[in-house]
Write a protein that binds this DNA or RNA. Structure first.
Lengths: 284, 284
DNA sequence: CCGTATTACGCTAGCCGTAATGATG
DNA sequence: CATCATTACGGCTAGCGTAATACGG
């Protein structure tokens, strides 16, 4: 029977030009390769080479066969690759979100509910990309700030979040009951990266210099040691508690208070039932 | 390494549904097939089946892999098939002709000049088909009654042929120096099959009943034993000599005298040089 | 119990490598 | 005579079959 390994040898001979060179590339002996090529001709029932006593070349048949073999080998590789890719996607639950906070609650629960699955998360300000990803299978769950319109998608509420300033108690505005973003514009502020749509909200503070600190411990140290204002949200505080030496002041700008929704494909409803139940609990 | 035989086993399992059935189809034992399927999973690095103690089924990965494997196997078959087809075409010299007589001279010479090649011949009234066939490689040589116009084609003259009546000496018109087709219309005539364009010429004798005899010896017997008029040509007579008890009367209708040309692809000129030389000799 | 998959075990056909041979430029 | 392909021969291992085992409807 024709086998892929034989075709690989044929292709090696095509690219190397001699049995010696090809056999070295294939890490087998010349006699082995010589025999394989004869066997291949037998299997095709067709002469593939012109042979002189110390020279072997592909003839027209051989060139065609080798070219087609090369394609076939590529496709065989693609076959395993696609199977692996499918398996990976079956073992991965991709979650996209427009803001990081909901993810902090959702991701650990997903890990607990679907052990063995890789939870892949993405934070982006682009809600359109998330909806698109839901539809084409790129995401299984998406946390949005509104209900998606696309057919085939459903969603459940996932609570709300309200942006606040986190000011040192010594800050001049620390006593305010409510502030506008513009009130602190021009100062230097501490910020986490990957804020999702919040990054868009902060465009209302064009004069502000943001110091971005990704590392969690370092961020906490900066908060404690510096007198730089920062942001927090009601949701973060409910989860992490208050920060010593800092006071929380709500922001009254439009768009700083949002409702979240977790969207999913209707066809995934059963598969994701456990996760959606957890979402409901958090939504309260 | 992934091998086609393994993929064949996978496909057999997909179509048969159980290892037992598939192993019977493949003419191997169940244990062998069971092991092969495990090996396949190893090679993919991916689970392909859901197993209970006495039931095995393809999972999502497995279905994808089996479907792709089926395609790949088909393409592997096509690969050898194409190589064989190429080989066959390399070993075949296809000759098309609009009339049988030139072929009687050409075919034996081609067999002599290209030993080992299969000479495949076709007689057809449709000259357009022959030109088309020359262009697409379906024919290597075509005998036509005019020079082909298509670019990439060349031709050489191959003599002429003149249609005659072959009448019993007892026939009322046997003494004529020349006749029209219409002069014998309404009689019953002897005919060979596969006349090429001559068949079109005979449409000028709508009232004639033709007795077609393919077999050579039988045709000769009919010629000798019967008094039915028949056709011959100058070219046939030059080759075979005259027929006892018959006289030859030329036909003066338009289109009963033709010049032949042997057409070929210009790119084939060198390969066919020997054949074309022979054509020239016959053309005199 | 019959049908199915898996495990255990011994065998063998196919493929390989080494060594020797042949041809060619 | 250096290089390449082929032939000869012996060894090894992947894959097979048989037999035994285990599970489920």
């Amino acid at each position: 029977m024709l086998e892929l390994y034989d075709l690989e040898k044929l292709v090696a001979f095509k690219t190397e030009g001699t049995l010696v060179a090809a056999s070295e590339k294939l890490l087998i002996s010349q006699p082995a390769l010589s025999r394989s090529m004869r066997k291949l001709e037998d299997e095709f029932g067709v002469e593939l080479f012109t042979r002189s006593r110390n020279r072997m070349e592909l003839n027209e048949n051989g060139r065609l066969a080798a070219d087609l073999a090369e394609k076939l080998l590529y496709e065989a590789g693609a076959l395993t690759e696609r199977a692996r890719a499918l398996d990976r996607s079956r073992r991965t639950l991709s979650v996209g979100t427009v803001a990081p906070a909901p993810l902090w609650e959702l991701a650990p629960e997903l890990s607990r509910l679907y052990p063995g699955m890789t939870i892949s998360t993405t934070v982006t300000a682009d809600a359109g990309k998330l909806v698109e990803g839901l539809l084409d299978g790129g995401y299984s769950l998406a946390v949005l700030t509104g209900r998606p319109e696309a057919p085939g998608l459903e969603c459940v509420g996932f609570g709300s979040e309200k942006l606040c300033f986190l000011l040192p108690v010594t800050h001049p505005l620390a006593g305010a009951r409510s502030l506008r973003l513009a009130d602190l514009d021009g100062e230097t502020m501490l910020l986490r990266p990957n804020l999702g749509f919040w990054a868009d909200v902060l465009k209302a503070m064009p004069g502000t210099r943001f110091i971005v600190q990704e590392e969690n411990y370092a961020f906490g140290e900066l908060l404690r040691a510096s007198s730089l204002p920062a942001f927090t949200t009601d949701r973060v505080q409910r989860r992490n508690g208050v920060t010593d030496g800092r006071t929380t002041v709500p922001i009254s700008d439009e768009g700083t208070s949002v409702d979240y929704f977790v969207a999913y494909r209707a066809s995934d409803k059963r598969r994701l039932a456990d996760a959606l139940k957890v979402v409901e609990v958090y939504a309260r």
